[in-house]
Amino acid sequence: MQIYLPIAEMSVSVLMILGLGAAVGFISGLFGIGGGFLMTPLLIFLGIPPAVAVATQSAQIVASSTTSVLSALRRNALDLRLGGMLVAGGFVGSTLGVWFFAAARRAGQLDLVIVVSYVTLFSVVGSLMMKESISEFWMKRRGGTPLPPRQGGQHAPYLLWPLRMRFPRSQLYVSVIPILGLSLFVGFAGALLGIGGGFIMVPALLYIFRIPTSVVVGTSQFQIVCTTLVALVLHAVANQAVDIVLAILLIVGGVFGAQFGARAGRNLRAELFRFLLAILLLAVGLRFALELVMRPNEPFSITIQETRT
């Protein structure tokens, strides 16, 4: 069954978009990430104009993350205080990211900046997680106790900087400077790459701040909902590229996928969870690296700047 998308100005298969939404929603629910870094390239591959793809998938991220946040809230697996700090830093980072995006576009090398950032971020974050989860796995097999639960007062030096704040739900008493720094960086990368940044936030909360896994996903999703909501409205106002029909199809597929993903995630052992997320990130990073170094089938590309009707 085909349906015409009024903003993208093309027709697509309803079932294909529903399926795409469900698949990305599953991964999103499983890992507590937005899934934008998967959805955007897939939509562009289907022929949807890049601006519409980036803008519209943010609506789907809002919907699937809202579901996760609400269910995390019910399970008391969300640190609102920490989430609020992350959102505050994230807004500043997003503004800087949007500014840098425009500067790179003026220089004519936006594609390059995006691909290089993807490769760097994904391979660094992916290999760090991979290394961690493998060593954890071996330690467990040898009967050792991996990664003992963090004791009170056992902190890396940068967590002891001034302006310390208590986050009871995350069992954390740290300086807000590294937290704001992290959210600033995630907001910056998110705006630049058109992603929520959950895949940076989740490992950072897990490894740098050693926040319990149960709280990490809900808190990261809370930050994603807030920043993506702002991005969605900004995209609608500035680019008029949000396709409401496409958004609803992706959302309907996505909410179902996210439910099953979240349920599957609860039954997943922590180190397997990290291992799978690491594989996913490395795979996406590798794909972009190949794009950068392989001889392209078609060295030419066209960009439509404007259509005069």
Binding site: V62, A63, T67, A236, Q240, I244, I251
Partner: peptide, 25 residues
Amino acid sequence: AARDASLTYGLATALIALGFGWLAS
């Protein structure tokens, strides 16, 4: 609507997304 009332359109889309998320949960 997307062209002439872009802010309302954006907010409406955001509301729909939030609504669907709540409904699903």
